[in-house]
């Protein structure tokens, strides 16, 4: 209890005395968090969009001729060798014909006289609707094309490749900005705490002399960094939220269709994670410089 009161007072005093440096750090942390979470939010939304779109995605593999039972097994084996899939359906000419008939509905009479096996047999491959699997769809289709007896592979949505390329890019950008976040926060905090420590050598020496434990000397600096990370991240996320709503508002005017797309802000657990991550990084920065300077 006393420990906490004294710790808080100590930390408060420190932060109050160096408020300029504090503001600088919090601003830097906030900016890094903003940059990182901005890209992450784009990535996050693209991911969701991708999964939604991927739900009704299938590869249609047209075959030369009807596969017999054993050949079907062989196809199944070869497909699974490349990638896990959700489902594999074999559609013979007759089923394809019936499906077409159903789709035509009232107009199905135009099919009268057409031989029931005029459509080629096919395999319908439903990929696992996760990004990992979907991102390989182009290669998957190329692979399927090499299988014997395959005439053509179709997955309709042409843009899907480009979409996943975009996701790929966003993943890299998010990663890079994440690294930026780590570097700036840890180094920035480590550096400023180092300066504070150096400027207060005399006091720290005295604390040693009057019997302060290492924890006593160190805790205020760790707590200070933790608070900086917390505040910085909170500011960064808030700024992102404002930016997000502003962009949504801007887009809603000229492109009302976009307003219906499922763009969402981070859910709470992710916000919490970002804030915790930022605090952790700052604390690590502080930990390393207190360790070095106090020679603990």
């Amino acid at each position: 209890m006393n420990f906490i009161v004294i710790l808080l007072r100590q930390t408060g005093r420190n932060m109050f005395h160096t408020w300029k440096a504090q503001t600088m750090i919090i601003f830097t942390v906030a900016l890094s968090v903003l940059i990182f979470s901005f890209f992450y939010l784009i990535y996050f939304n693209a991911l969701h969009l991708g999964e939604k779109l991927g739900e009704d995605l299938r590869l249609i593999v047209y075959l030369e001729e009807e596969p017999v039972e054993s050949l079907q097994e062989e196809y199944r084996r070869r497909i699974l060798r490349f990638d896990q899939v959700m489902r594999i359906d074999f559609i013979d000419s007759r089923q394809a014909f019936e499906r077409l008939e159903r789709q035509l509905g009232q107009d199905s009479d135009i099919l009268t006289g057409v031989p029931r096996n005029f459509l080629p047999p096919s395999i319908e491959v439903y990929p696992v609707p996760s990004l990992n699997h979907l991102s390989r769809i182009k290669r998957f289709s190329d692979y399927l094309l090499t299988l014997p007896g395959v005439v053509k592979v179709q997955y309709g949505k042409d843009w899907i490749d480009r979409f996943y390329a975009f996701i790929q890019l966003m993943r890299i950008v998010t990663l890079l900005s994440g690294i930026l976040l780590i570097m700036t926060t840890t180094f920035m905090v480590a550096h400023t705490i180092r300066l504070t420590l150096l400027s207060r050598q005399q006091e720290l020496k005295l604390l040693r002399l009057v019997g302060a434990t290492n924890t006593y000397i160190r805790m205020p600096f760790l707590l200070e960094a933790l608070l900086q990370g917390l505040l910085g991240a909170a500011c960064g996320i808030t700024a992102l939220l404002v930016l997000f709503n502003w962009i949504k508002l801007q887009l809603a005017g000229p492109l009302p269709a976009l307003a219906h797309l499922p763009f969402t802000f981070f859910p709470w657990p992710i916000i919490l994670c970002i804030v915790l991550l930022s605090s952790l990084l700052c604390t690590v920065g502080s930990y390393s410089s207190t360790r070095k300077i106090l020679q603990l």
């Binding site: 006393n2 604390l207 009057v210």
Partner: peptide
């Protein structure tokens, strides 16, 4: 106060 604070005395 420093000498007493390091021993976690009540404020």
């Amino acid at each position: 106060a420093i000498a007493m604070e390091v021993a976690y005395r009540q404020p």
